[in-house]
């Protein structure tokens, strides 16, 4: 048995056309059925409401409407059709403060560019097999920013224990459990 991505609908927000085409090529190679592309967060939100995708892959830096403002809108807007939809944020940024900033808007996974097909696949597997619970509080609504593995301290960008050791393009969103 293997995954059947044929019925999966993915929305990609990426303003760099060649990059968008590469992501679509990877997804189609995985067998994804539908992959819609758009170049900014504003239009992306319109398509999100229209198509209700199963998964969103969003670049950080776009205009008008970057990946973080798009994520906030998906998570918190009254007219969001699915505030729980998994969102993979893709970006060249990897510094801790950037990861924390992105995490606090409610993204599900963080993927650093440049990345390989395997890197993207690893993120998909995390979403499918280790879905995060959501947290609703005064200041935050989104995927739980903690993991139940035994991290005692969050010392910055690091890989998950399950990542391929050769891959250095993934970032752990796990934080210290308070």
């Amino acid at each position: 048995m293997s995954y059947d991505f044929g019925n999966l609908r993915v929305l990609i927000l990426e303003d760099n056309k060649p990059m968008l085409e590469i992501i679509r090529a990877i997804l189609f190679s995985f067998g994804v059925g539908e992959a819609y592309g758009v170049s900014n967060g504003e239009r992306g939100y319109d398509l999100f409401r229209e198509y209700e995708p199963d998964l969103i892959i969003a670049d950080w830096m776009m205009s008008p409407g970057d990946g973080l403002s798009f994520t906030r809108k998906v998570r918190t807007s009254k007219d969001s059709p699915n505030p729980f939809v998994p969102i993979i944020l893709i970006t060249g940024f990897s510094a801790k403060k950037r990861v924390v900033s992105a995490r606090d808007t409610g993204i599900t996974e963080f993927l650093v560019k440049p990345f390989t097909a395997k890197d993207l696949y690893t993120r998909l597997v995390q979403i499918i097999e280790r879905p995060r619970k959501f947290i609703r509080s005064d200041e935050f609504f989104g995927p739980d920013r903690r993991r139940s593995n035994k991290l005692s301290d969050y010392n910055g960008v690091r890989r998950r224990a399950s990542d391929d050791e050769k891959s250095n393009n993934t970032v752990n969103l796990d934080v210290r459990k308070r």
Partner: peptide
């Protein structure tokens, strides 16, 4: 997503 794609990787 899991409901749609199944298992097996």
């Amino acid at each position: 997503i899991k409901q749609k794609v199944g298992t097996g990787g």
